[in-house]
Design a binder for these strands. Structure first.
Lengths: 213, 213
DNA sequence: TAGATTGTTAATCGATTAACAATC
DNA sequence: TAGATTGTTAATCGATTAACAATC
């Protein structure tokens, strides 16, 4: 994982995830090598773009051959932090929180989920894949001991900003935000990744409405 | 909703959703007017960008005054298809499907959910907010009667491509894709909006891993 | 009126694509 | 070897930002 001078754009990073997805699929099918041309065909990108994206992180290919699927897969996993032993907690075990607890493939991203927390007594104690939901007090205690790398924020909209600020005050430096709310001021030093479902559907609806006209 | 000659970029459309979110918040707080400068401050965009984004869809502001919050909110809802009476069905009532059925604010996007479908007999018949999950056969019958505008695809990865193709063959022209898979060839005429959770977490992990170095 | 702020045109910046020498 | 395909440099394209006349 050799990093070069300039840094890749956010769009480029997101494409790496997409490439990784396709590479895993190819690996599963026993495909050994792939060229930027073929990968681009499959995913709708130009060969140039793929080579540019990859080359900003290292020399992964071989001239006249292309890329070895398995080894490029491993390199992309490295870049995307799979081997960085990152830890996370989940805050808010409502519906979306539960869905993540029950189903999300954290291993696939190399993230170890340390715990889940909620304020609702009816939910506290419930167990999902070996993780029992704990109380707010437990969360605060936990954070004094060790701050995980990532907080997955799944609390209701109304508690979103408050909870986010609380977590950041206690040392959290990255948030995976499911609250459909802008939880922190722009340019805050916290690394923020938003999953805004309504934004996504509204974008789709815009194009659908346009197409219907 | 006056549309001008050139079309807005995808990024621009996505920002409109963000603006809309903030405008709703301001409206709730009783704020009557807003300038591109103030809105930009709140969301981390330059005033120029906001004016550019908006002006590609119409003249919504007033010189020397700014924008009226309520009326801009309404205009953005129009652009984002809220008043286009779009319809949708949900296919695959597993965990994420259920979470959407139980919680997603479809009204907020102006989308009417017509039905939900699954192959699992254990799930068929279950009701969520007035919508009973129906069988695959029911789905096919429904599609011969009337094709909804959007299919929300929540089936397992393994059934993703097959189900998507099935739906498209029967007339579906837009898919909100929750399967974490590339379900259709690039450049297909179907309008596709992907919600790829793992891509999102991997992107976050990349930045977190970088920051830890 | 003077100050504020729009919509738009022009300038800048960054990202994508094309081209090509290097070389497996 | 000849053909294929990389990594990289240069050219193009598009998106963001700055500037400003118009005007409320």
């Amino acid at each position: 994982m050799r990093s070069k001078g300039f840094r890749a754009s956010d769009n480029s990073i997101r494409r790496l995830s997409k490439y990784l997805r396709e590479l895993k699929e190819m690996e599963k099918r026993g495909i050994e090598k792939v060229s930027s041309y073929v990968l681009g065909e499959r995913l709708g990108h130009t060969p140039s773009q793929i080579r540019q994206d990859l080359s900003s992180f290292g020399d992964f290919g071989y001239q006249g051959y292309g890329y070895n699927v398995s080894s490029l897969r491993r390199s992309l996993e490295d870049i995307l932090g799979k081997n960085s032993e990152l830890t996370a907690i989940l805050v808010g075990a409502g519906n979306i929180g539960k869905a993540l607890l029950e189903n999300f493939p954290f291993d696939e991203c190399g993230v170890r989920l340390l715990g889940a927390y909620d304020v609702d007594p009816a939910v506290i104690g419930t167990e999902f894949r070996g993780i029992a939901v704990q109380s707010q007090a437990d969360l605060d205690e936990e954070l004094t001991l060790k701050v995980p790398d990532i907080a997955i924020l799944c609390v209701p909209k109304t508690a979103a900003v408050e909870t986010a600020e609380h977590l950041v005050e206690r040392g959290i430096r990255a948030i995976w935000n499911y609250t459909n709310t802008e939880i922190l001021p722009p340019y805050s030093p916290v690394i923020l990744e938003n999953v805004h479902f309504t934004d996504s559907l509204q974008t789709l609806c815009h194009y659908v409405a346009e197409a219907k006209k």
